[in-house]
Design a protein around this nucleic acid. Structure first.
Lengths: 243, 243
DNA sequence: CGATGGATTGAACACTCTCAATACTGGTGG
DNA sequence: CCACCAGTATTGAGAGTGTTCAATCCATCG
């Protein structure tokens, strides 16, 4: 996380350190893995490497949720649909992200590849057995779920209160944080305008107009439709009104 | 849950039964408590009974999150604010509900009493120690967080895709389910139109108009501003387009 | 019984959507 | 390497939904 961007971080209170409450685990010593990501690595013998091409479906809503995933490369979208076909993109899953930790027998959302994607997939049962024997992992899962819930609630705030321009500013700032964007670097926008619209509850055209407005405000420049330069973080943050 | 209303249940896939993976706990036998609610009862010696009056603050965003709560009586709202004061009500907490299980050092939202409220409050540390020794409780916490996340994601779908009338229909149906409303019974609406608006991302006036439209559609009647009768569940469900 | 706060309704306005036309981009095949 | 093509992005104009502002109604509570 860049120092300068971290000041714009979404309001996400420090997670509890659940470790102090967890029983020490004899086979682990100080300096061992601490993130869920690290722990997943210990399951590599059970993992499969999967490839999907742009717009392919990784799993569909309602299918059994029997795997956990790590995105090695590329971007996914998690979609939900209304009966008449209207779509909402709950969230994007970026390179390095993990998913599949909900306590849910069936997938609550459809996962589709935004770009060509490489995933690691681990059987949920293997992970659960690992977690059953390791309190540190359980603490990680709780933190992961909590962080997801906080993100979802923040997104509710954005969608409930903000205008189109504000939502786009919030979205771009969050994407910049998640990708550890350094000031001046180009922000990669793997998803199309339609996807951004379906994520923010707006139409493609409104996304375009909001970006155009931000461009003419001088808040950003648009080298290509899938690359932005955030030129005025202060202006973007003021729009996002992150507290 | 009434049989007839349960058909309209929000799409919430069956939760995993995490118990089979949890180590059996010698002090528990078949038939023991299975819900988080039941487990909290075993902490009653550490609990405090709290009372708040309408519009009083139970806790504010940013305060240390060092308790878990059960609502004995009344209704709470969980609010988040933008820097300029715009408010979003993340969710309402109803009688019988529990909260405070996020892995989060500080409260991510403000809790206010919608009506006069009675709560039980338990020190978070006590609960965590209980959970550390009881895998069944940990499974409950995971399910609780997962259910909350699924609810939040469903609310994102509602706010991202639906019109005012549809959102109000979705809201009323969810409230009816949560309160186990029997067909024909009056639905208690403890919160005001402003609160409903701030929950659904609409204004007071729009909520009023949506309810008026539903009334003139014959979908419901309005004996008083805080009581509704859902007369045509089929019509309401069609609006909510719950899949 | 008056006062207060919330609910309701109306009218004008603003923002976003819809529909349509055009421009651009990236990929394909010659 | 270039021309073409399909899909996406962008821009414009008009329509619609929800907001804003204002007035009125209603219920509750001194």
């Amino acid at each position: 996380m860049s120092i300068s961007l971290s000041a714009a971080r979404n309001p996400s209170p420090a997670l509890r350190n659940g470790f102090s409450l967890a029983q020490p685990h004899s086979s682990h010593v100080y300096g061992e893995p601490r993130t869920l990501n690290d722990h997943l690595r210990s399951l590599r013998q059970y993992g499969s490497r999967l490839h999907y091409r742009r717009n392919e479906t990784v799993f569909a809503e309602g299918e059994p949720a029997d795997s956990v995933y790590k995105v090695i490369n590329g971007t996914l979208r998690l979609c939900r649909f209304l009966a008449d076909g209207r779509r909402h993109i709950t969230d994007f899953v970026l390179s390095g992200d993990i998913m599949g930790f909900l306590e849910c027998a069936d997938q609550p959302a459809t996962a589709e590849a935004v770009t060509d994607v490489t995933l690691m997939s681990y059987p949920r049962g293997c992970f659960d057995r690992l977690a059953a024997s390791n309190p540190e992992i359980r603490a990680c899962v709780l933190c992961h779920l909590s962080a997801n819930l906080l993100e979802a609630q923040h997104q509710l705030l954005v969608m409930g209160c903000q205008s189109a321009k504000e939502r786009v500013a919030s979205f771009l700032l969050r994407l910049a944080e998640r990708t550890d964007l350094q000031p001046g670097e180009r922000l990669d926008l793997p998803m199309g305008r339609q996807d951004i619209g379906d994520h923010l509850g707006l139409t493609t055209e409104t996304i375009c107009r909001a970006i155009s407005m931000l461009k003419s405000d001088g808040a950003l420049s648009v080298p290509s439709p899938h690359e932005l330069v955030l030129k005025d973080l202060r202006a973007l943050r003021a729009l996002a009104t992150e507290s």
